[in-house]
């Protein structure tokens, strides 16, 4: 680590290392969207490394329309009390008061999420101001680095949530990985222009060029619906996956959830993926992303 801080003599909470380190512990795992304590238990039983507590899964947010906001604190607390694994919850982009509320509830990670209706079309929340770590979505490297500059301790490629279609997840992860590979090939003279092009701080750009990866954990999200989808994202370089509507909008959520967990660990073993993919029942129906109007593309939210 290039920027290893020295350990304080008195205990210190909310440090960058503790926030980023929490995401390191989730690697190789599956984070599942749940809307009730019962679903949270099913997710924990299936081997989820964490759950995302929300009122409606993205597929339903899409269907219902209207403004999507932070979930009811009662509902989030119900889920915190139901399981022993980490619980995440979503705030709207730029809605730092929702984030303050989530921190006060004791959630383990806050997702400043494009799936909810943005509260600010210019600014994201200042995530350094919080003890609770944040995960943010990104469609490309510049966006990822802007979020990290604002204090995000974990990045997820956005994909297109609530579609059950992995195509956008693949596009965004390939974009991020491709841009990192390109930075690796830059000499020091070129990094200044690269930072300008990426609209990201030079120090972060330089760090990525040296590390060959983001300085925080990178997961994939938005459209993962099958064990093979999860394994695909892992093989493309995601360190773990978020599964939203894909599990609880399917025919047999418990079985599908366990199968996706196994496929995420054995992502490079087609025999295991084949085995866990047998008789899973119906997958969520899904939406073809090219028929989605621009205004209904969540990935476009965030700046």
């Amino acid at each position: 680590m290039s920027s290893t801080p020295t350990t304080p003599q008195t205990p210190e909470t909310g440090t960058a290392r503790v926030k980023r380190g929490m995401a390191e512990q989730l690697k190789g795992g599956v984070i599942m969207d749940v809307v009730t304590p019962e679903e949270a238990k099913i997710a924990e039983d299936a081997g989820a490394v964490a759950v995302m507590a929300l009122e409606r899964v993205p597929a339903d947010i899409r269907k219902d329309g209207g403004v999507a906001r932070m979930s009811d604190p009662d509902m989030i607390e119900g889920i915190i009390n139901a399981v022993s694994i980490p619980v995440m919850a979503k705030s709207r982009i730029g809605h730092f008061v929702e984030a303050q509320v989530l921190q006060s509830l004791g959630v383990d990670y806050i997702d400043e999420s494009e799936v909810l209706t943005p509260a600010d079309e210019v600014n994201h929340s200042d995530k350094w101001a919080f003890t609770t770590p944040f995960v943010c979505g990104a469609t490309n490297l510049g966006e990822a680095l802007r979020r990290i500059a604002e204090g995000a301790a974990m990045i997820r490629s956005k994909g297109e949530a609530g579609t059950g279609n992995v195509v956008e997840a693949v596009r965004h992860l390939r974009q991020i990985k491709g841009e990192i590979a390109k930075l690796r090939g830059c000499d020091n003279n070129e990094l200044f222009a690269a930072a300008k092009e990426l609209r990201a701080p030079y120090e972060l750009v330089k760090e990525v060029a040296e590390l060959g990866k983001l300085p925080v954990v990178l997961f994939s999200a938005g459209g993962v619906a099958t064990p093979a989808d999860a394994a695909l994202m892992r093989q493309l370089g995601a360190e773990g996956v978020f599964v939203g509507s894909g599990i609880f909008k399917s025919g047999d959520p418990a079985k599908r959830a366990a199968a996706i967990v196994k496929a995420t660990t054995f992502y490079d073993d087609p025999k295991v993926i084949a085995d866990v993919s047998r008789n899973l029942g119906e997958a969520m129906v899904g939406i073809n992303c090219d028929t989605l109007p621009e205004t209904e593309r969540y990935a476009n939210r965030g700046w």
Binding site: Q9, P11, E12, T13, T15, G21, G106, V107, D108
Partner: peptide, 13 residues
Amino acid sequence: NAFGRQNESFEAA
């Protein structure tokens, strides 16, 4: 999880 949830996570010598 004896030391608490993520908000209680800490560094110390």
